[in-house]
């Protein structure tokens, strides 16, 4: 589904140039659950941002189902993003001024889903995520685990082909963290492709494949079968 070739990304400030991505080659198949790991500053978040069209690389190619995405302009990028991708962040990133229901509804509005359908879709996902009794609350009124459930719900409500998760358990304690990971696994089993950046090898253990990054290079890749059961 995703084919990335020779991706390069350099950050420049007045004094220093930092190479965040240095010729990355990567493929993700449909239905895969891929973890990207590596030390701080290895470029894993940058890679995820590029994959989510939130950041532009200097050079290279990024094909999504045979569409070259790096040639798109700003408007086309956001159109592509809203139609195909969902995001989960470490710090949840819910809009404080909107209720749970409204937060989840927002991507549907951007996708121009009619109001009645919207309501049904939001209600369905709220039930699935087990946050029905929270739908009128504001993010500040929820625990971290609950906030991340809302964020996942928001990422999934548009039924995206690809979910990008950036340290989704980073701000959660282990029991809430596990809940979120199980949620992602469940999604993956239902066919959603997931790419997740993480520090935690525990979390990475939930995925099919682990890619290790260092200094902007892919240094290793391993298939991860059966480990999940082992760890639990």
């Amino acid at each position: 589904m995703i084919r990335i070739e020779n991706l390069e990304k350099v950050y420049k400030t007045e004094e220093i140039e930092t190479t965040a991505l240095n010729g990355i080659n990567l493929q993700v198949k449909e239905g895969e659950f891929v973890s990207i790991m590596g030390p701080s500053g290895c470029g894993k978040s940058t890679l995820l941002n590029v994959m989510g069209l939130l950041d532009k690389p200097e050079s290279g190619s990024y094909k999504f189902m045979d569409t070259e995405l790096l040639k798109l302009n700003d408007r086309e990028r956001s159109n592509f993003r809203k139609a195909n991708m969902g995001f989960v962040f470490q710090n949840f990133n819910l809009i404080d001024e909107l209720t749970v229901f409204e937060n989840i509804e927002l991507p549907l509005i951007y996708n121009k889903v009619p109001a009645a359908t919207r309501k049904a879709m939001v209600n369905e996902i709220i039930q699935r995520m087990n946050i029905v009794n929270r739908s009128g609350h504001f993010p500040q009124q929820l625990s971290g685990g609950q906030q991340q459930r809302v964020a996942v719900a928001r990422a999934l409500v548009t039924k995206p082909k690809l979910v990008l998760a950036d340290e989704p358990t980073g701000n959660l304690d282990s029991s809430h963290g596990n809940e979120v990971m199980e949620l992602l696994c469940e999604l993956n089993e239902q066919g959603t492709t997931i790419v997740m950046v993480t520090h935690s090898s525990h979390d990475a253990g939930f995925s099919n494949r682990i890619i290790n990054l260092k200094d902007g290079h892919v240094i290793s890749e391993k298939i991860n079968k059966g480990i999940t059961e082992e760890l639990i």
Binding site: G52, L54, D74, R75, S78, N79, R81, K82, A83, F87, N93, L94, I95, D96, E97, L106, P107, Y110, N111, R154
Partner: peptide
């Protein structure tokens, strides 16, 4: 943050 999220969810400048 609001701007960031909205952009992620499909809004543009």
């Amino acid at each position: 943050k609001e701007v960031g999220i909205k952009k992620v969810l499909g809004s543009y400048r």
